[in-house]
Lab assay of single mutants.
Amino acid sequence: MATADDFKLIRDIHSTGGRRQVFGSREQKPFEDLVDLGWLKRSSVDSRATHYQITERGTSAAL
Rank of each mutant, 00 (worst) to 15 (best):
D12S: 12
S15L: 13
T3D: 05
F31P: 01
M1K: 13
V22R: 03
D12N: 08
I54K: 01
P30Y: 06
T55A: 02
S47V: 10
R20D: 03
T16H: 11
R11F: 10
R20T: 09
A49F: 11
A4F: 10
Y52L: 02
P30D: 05
S15V: 10
R11Q: 09
S25M: 08
S25I: 11
G58Y: 00
I54G: 01
G24M: 06
R26S: 15
S44W: 14
A49R: 07
T55C: 02
A4N: 09
K29F: 04
P30I: 06
L63H: 11
S60Q: 14
G38K: 05
S60V: 13
T3I: 04
M1N: 11
G24L: 09
E27H: 10
G17N: 07
Y52T: 01
A2Q: 04
E56W: 08
S15D: 13
R48M: 14
G17C: 08
P30H: 07
H14I: 06
F23A: 14
I13N: 00
S47W: 08
H14M: 12
Q21A: 13
A62C: 06
I54N: 01
V35D: 01
Q53T: 13
S44M: 13
H51C: 15
L9G: 02
T16L: 07
R48H: 14
G58R: 00
S43Y: 12
R26L: 15
Y52F: 04
P30N: 06
Q21F: 11
R19F: 14
W39L: 02
I10T: 01
G17H: 05
K29M: 07
F7K: 04
P30F: 06
W39I: 00
G38I: 02
D12C: 14
R11W: 12
T59V: 14
D36A: 14
E32M: 10
M1S: 11
D33L: 14
L9C: 05
G17R: 05
D33R: 15
W39G: 00
K29C: 06
T16R: 09
A4D: 12
A49C: 14
S47R: 09
E32V: 06
W39E: 01
T59L: 12
R20N: 04
E27R: 09
L63M: 11
F23W: 09
S15E: 12
D46P: 05
D12Y: 10
F23I: 15
A61L: 03
L40K: 00
R48T: 14
K8P: 02
S25N: 11
S60E: 15
Q53A: 09
I13Y: 00
D46H: 07
Y52R: 01
P30G: 05
G38N: 04
G24P: 07
T55M: 02
G58W: 00
I54E: 03
D5H: 08
W39H: 01
G58N: 00
A2Y: 06
K8R: 13
S60Y: 13
T55W: 00
G17P: 02
T55V: 02
E56K: 09
M1C: 15
L63G: 05
S43H: 10
E56T: 09
A61C: 07
E32L: 08
T16F: 05
V45M: 10
Q21D: 13
Q28I: 09
K41V: 15
K29R: 11
R26E: 15
K29I: 08
S47H: 10
K29T: 06
V22A: 07
T16A: 11
S44H: 15
A62R: 02
I13V: 07
K41L: 13
S60W: 14
S15Q: 13
R57Q: 14
H14E: 06
E32F: 04
S15H: 11
F7V: 07
D5C: 14
A4M: 12
Q28T: 10
R19G: 09
D33W: 12
V22I: 09
H51Q: 11
R57G: 07
L37V: 03
L63W: 05
F23V: 15
F7C: 08
K29V: 07
A49W: 14
G38C: 05
G24I: 07
R57M: 14
D12H: 09
Q28P: 04
I54M: 05
G38A: 04
G58K: 00
E32S: 07
V35N: 02
L40G: 00
L63V: 08
K8V: 10
V35F: 03
D12M: 10
D46K: 07
I54D: 01
G58L: 00
R42A: 08
G24N: 13
Q53S: 09
R19W: 14
G38S: 03
F7L: 10
V45P: 06
Q21S: 15
A62L: 04
A2I: 07
K29P: 04
I13C: 02
V45D: 08
T50Q: 06
G17E: 06
Y52A: 01
G17W: 03
D33K: 15
Q53N: 07
G18M: 02
V35Y: 03
Q21P: 07
V35K: 02
I13K: 01
V45H: 09
T16C: 11
V22H: 04
R57C: 14
R48Y: 14
I10Y: 00
R20G: 04
P30W: 05
R20I: 14
S60G: 09
T16V: 06
W39K: 00
H14K: 05
F7T: 04
V35C: 10
S44Q: 13
H51K: 08
A4G: 08
S44T: 11
H14V: 07
S47P: 10
R42F: 05
